[in-house]
């Protein structure tokens, strides 16, 4: 965990573009919020590994949003339930239900469908917002924080040595 956090801070302080880090966080959001063993998560994983995004941010986002999903799940289930049981959408679901691939992806599962939709809706806002925060961090906060005694104390700690080793790697 410390390594992961250190990697993120390193990424924040490195030359990685804010967009790469934000994309990692956004993709991590999808896996974190939706049930882990879902077909779409395999696709997300492939994308994350194939495209040059920041993997530290990606994995940290998975961990963070997996915890956050406990609060989101009831809402996701209600959303999935209302969509799957909506009489106006029944014809569409019935047609899609005949496709094995869609059944394999578990889109007829209330939590899977609801959480995927929520994560997709949040995907771009989270990406933009995290990109904004990273830029703001680099411009204002990084220099400001380094002035604090506590930061200097951290630099003398074990955490900082890990950070150093990661940064040096």
């Amino acid at each position: 965990m410390l390594t992961l956090l250190a990697k993120l801070i390193n990424a924040l302080n490195s030359d990685s573009s804010p967009r790469q880090i934000a994309a990692g966080i956004s993709l991590g959001l999808i896996i974190g919020l939706t049930p882990l063993f879902s077909l779409h998560n395999l696709l997300v994983l492939i994308i994350a590994f194939l495209i040059r995004i920041n993997l530290g941010g990606f994995f940290l986002a998975i961990t963070f949003f997996a915890g956050f999903s406990y609060f989101i799940n009831p809402l996701a289930i209600l959303l999935g339930e209302s969509l799957l049981t909506s009489s106006s959408l029944e014809a569409m679901w019935h047609a899609l239900y005949q496709l094995s691939a869609l059944k394999l992806a578990h889109y007829h599962h209330t939590l899977t469908l609801g959480s995927l939709l929520i994560s997709l809706v949040l995907f771009l806002p989270v990406m933009w917002f995290s990109q904004f925060l990273i830029i703001r961090y680099r411009v204002h906060i990084k220099a400001f924080i380094e002035k604090f005694k506590i930061v200097r104390a951290i630099k003398a700690s074990k955490f900082y040595s890990i950070y150093q080793s990661v940064a040096g790697a």
């Binding site: 009831p74 209600l78 339930e81 049981t85 029944e90 019935h94 007829h108 209330t110 609801g114």
Partner: peptide, 13 residues
């Protein structure tokens, strides 16, 4: 509604 794990909604196959 199971607000913890969700459920499968099956359609006519």
């Amino acid at each position: 509604i199971d607000t913890e794990n969700g459920r499968y909604v099956h359609f006519k196959d």
